[in-house]
Amino acid sequence: MNDWLIAIMAVAGTILVYVSGRYFYSRYPQPFTLPIVTGTLVIVLFLVFTNVSYPTYMIGGQWIEHLLGPAVVALAMPLYKQRDMLKKYFFPLTTAVAVGSSVGLLSGYFPVRWLQIDDMLIASVLPKSVTTPVAMDVSDSIGGNPSLAAIFVMVAGIGGVVTAPYLFKWCGIANDLARGIASGTASHAIGTAKALGNSEREGAASSVAMTLSALLVSVIVPSLVIILF
């Protein structure tokens, strides 16, 4: 089959899977039915059962993936739109994000190192707390694998929103601003979507925290790697 045909089929198929996933999520909104979870599952199962290789699928898939670059650039706009919140709560936001992100990196790094798991995997786990496209870029630039990085980002996102209500209760985190910042720092876009459902202020705090943590991690991690590896 020629490459153009494969590409068009892969792109159309992926869009179809995504649209169906969104519809399914609108009917059954649960963290485990997020389009990224069901969509990944469907595509993986499709490839396994039809014996289509991943590189073949990526002939078309890469055209979709290519849009991730401008999508990361686009994150500048929500941050700019929340500039009043950033200005007003600059100190709590930056401090909490910096402390949280650092703790996230260290608590991800050391256990994996102790288990003597190889560097490629460590590099894929490290950026788990930041939004997927940034995590993929970061892991790629430090020798990790973007696909694996995206899986660990999903674990952080879904694991975070599922447990957040209990954590906040048990740990006495009652302030809505603090809750938003925690969700954005630990569980990126999935946490932010959940925070937005609670209140607009919590969502805004989460959105700013998510973007700040993405910025911070992408600046810190590459230099940290020189020291740690």
Binding site: P92, V99, S101, G104, L115, N175, A182
Partner: peptide
Amino acid sequence: GSGLWLVFIAFVSTLIVMIVSGWTAQFIVN
């Protein structure tokens, strides 16, 4: 095998980040 540990570590680390960043923010705001 050992890869499942990675999922577990990523999960636990996420909980730690959630608590630490939440506490830090709440402490400063209060």
